[in-house]
Amino acid sequence: MEITVRPIGLIESEFKNTAEIPRQSIYAPEKQARLKLLDDYKDGLQGLTCGSKILIIFYFHQSTETPLLQKPCQSDKITGVFSIRSPHRPNHIGISEVKITKIENNTIYFTGVDMLDGTPVLDIKPVIS
């Protein structure tokens, strides 16, 4: 089986290298960034509102490793990749919960960024509480 996905947009953030990124978006609630959608996907923003939370599904475009066993950054215990949030995963897919601060044309401004500048975005989903 072959699965093909294409980015719907790119992240524009202050983080230019992986050493600067917070471990998770919840550890950077004040950090701001934007998701610039490709023009073809602009209509898909209808219904999103400022103040709401979304899940951004993205591709770890600078990750090159895929070990199934890893040591989490704050532990000495080796564990399976599916029990941690490492960017080094079989399909290099990440997900972050962020809060929308503004929507302008094809751009979502948000807080809680934990993604590199230039990160390809695969999808957006609303957080349902």
Rank of each mutant, 00 (worst) to 15 (best):
D40E: 15
D40Y: 10
D40M: 13
D40R: 11
Y41E: 09
Y41P: 10
Y41C: 04
K42E: 15
K42T: 10
D43P: 13
D43F: 09
D43R: 05
G44Q: 13
G44H: 10
L45H: 06
L45S: 10
Q46A: 14
Q46M: 04
G47W: 02
L48H: 04
L48M: 08
L48N: 00
L48E: 00
T49N: 12
C50W: 00
G51L: 01
G51W: 00
S52M: 05
S52E: 14
K53D: 03
K53A: 06
K53N: 12
L55T: 03
L55M: 11
L55V: 05
I56D: 08
I56L: 11
I57A: 03
I57P: 05
I57D: 05
I57V: 15
I57N: 13
F58P: 00
F58E: 06
F58L: 07
F58Y: 12
Y59G: 03
F60H: 13
F60E: 14
H61F: 15
H61Y: 08
H61V: 01
Q62E: 15
Q62S: 14
Q62F: 07
S63L: 09
S63T: 05
T64E: 15
T64K: 11
T64H: 12
T64S: 07
T64P: 08
E65I: 02
E65V: 07
E65S: 13
T66A: 12
P67H: 04
P67S: 02
P67K: 02
P67C: 04
P67G: 02
L68V: 07
L68I: 06
L68K: 01
L68S: 12
L68C: 11
L69C: 07
Q70D: 03
Q70T: 13
Q70N: 08
Q70F: 01
